[in-house]
């Protein structure tokens, strides 16, 4: 199933959209510090603050992919630094299985990435975001799924692929 053309995403100056789930205690504060230290990083990333990386249900990641985001970054505290003691350890297990499964069904692992960024690692945050953006740019737009055509849906449930 190759990319479906003729979307505006194919335009020359296409920029990827990346959703970042950042842990409230470490990575979000790290992102904040990056900004207030005036270190620049690509503006492709949309930040969603979560209480803990353990809050990120794999379902969020699947749903984000399904809704057409080009890349996903999940970032939390380093192991041992979790505000809730073990949230990131539990998250790590879920993500380990999820990332292997995604790879197995044919989603490039570079689309869904994970990182540990602490509140003081302003340079690491900028580096991680730039790396993710570069990876996703190399992969091209997420055209895994054709989003439902809502005009058609009003006529009744027909095949999603006209």
């Amino acid at each position: 199933m190759e990319a479906k053309p003729e979307t505006e995403k194919k335009e020359k100056n296409w920029e990827p959209k990346i959703l970042a789930f950042l842990c409230r205690w470490c990575s979000y504060a790290g992102a904040d510090l990056t900004g207030s230290s005036r270190i620049s990083y690509p503006a492709n990333v949309r930040i969603l603050r979560v209480p803990c990386s353990g809050r990120v249900n794999p379902l969020f990641i699947l749903k984000t992919l399904r809704s057409g985001m080009d890349g996903i970054l999940v970032s939390g505290c380093h192991p041992g630094d979790c505000h809730y003691t073990a949230g990131n350890y539990n998250a790590r297990r879920k993500f380990a299985i999820l990332s292997r499964l995604l790879e197995y069904v044919g989603i490039d692992p570079r689309r869904v990435q994970f990182s540990w960024v602490s509140a003081s690692e302003r340079d690491k945050f900028a580096k991680v975001v730039s790396a993710v953006v570069a990876d996703v740019k190399a992969l091209g737009p997420n055209e895994l799924f054709q989003l439902p055509d809502f005009g058609q849906m009003t006529k009744g449930p027909t095949s999603p692929d006209p």
Binding site: P58, K63, I97, Q146, P148, P160
Partner: peptide, 19 residues
């Protein structure tokens, strides 16, 4: 997940079932 058997929703459903 939308109940419509669209490919993307099927993907979410099957992976979520698995997880």
């Amino acid at each position: 997940v939308s109940p419509l058997p669209a490919e993307g929703d099927n993907f979410v459903f099957h992976l979520m079932r698995l997880l």
